[in-house]
């Protein structure tokens, strides 16, 4: 599997990570190498196998439909890079 520079840029865009031209070149090689290596899984016949969804069989737990938390806006915003009056301040989203 060869990952070309355009693919690296497309993935980086999807992942919201800026990559420099130099990094993109290195990543082409590294990602191709790793993806080539994982392709050995094609040797395994999985046509009649269910994908794993959880390692330990367990009935999904239910909880009471009640409010258990809240009224802590000051704590929620305490670590924000920018906040004002318990609101997050973010770059403009809608033009």
């Amino acid at each position: 599997m060869q990952v070309d520079e355009a693919t690296v840029r497309r993935i980086a865009r999807l992942a919201r990570i800026k990559v420099s031209d130099e990094e993109a070149k290195g990543l082409e090689k590294e990602l191709s190498g790793i993806l080539d290596w994982v392709k050995q899984l094609d040797d395994v016949d999985t046509s009649a196998v269910e994908p794993m969804t959880r390692v330990v069989e367990q009935k999904l737990k239910m909880r009471d439909d009640v409010v258990t938390d809240g009224e802590i806006a000051d704590q929620v915003t305490a670590n924000a890079p920018m906040s004002e009056d318990n609101f997050f301040v973010v770059p403009k989203v809608v033009e």
Binding site: V38, L41, D42, V44, T46, V49, E50, P51, M52, T53
Partner: peptide, 9 residues
């Protein structure tokens, strides 16, 4: 999906 199937095995 392939990896999760291998995981089952």
């Amino acid at each position: 999906l392939k990896a999760q199937k291998v995981r089952t095995l």
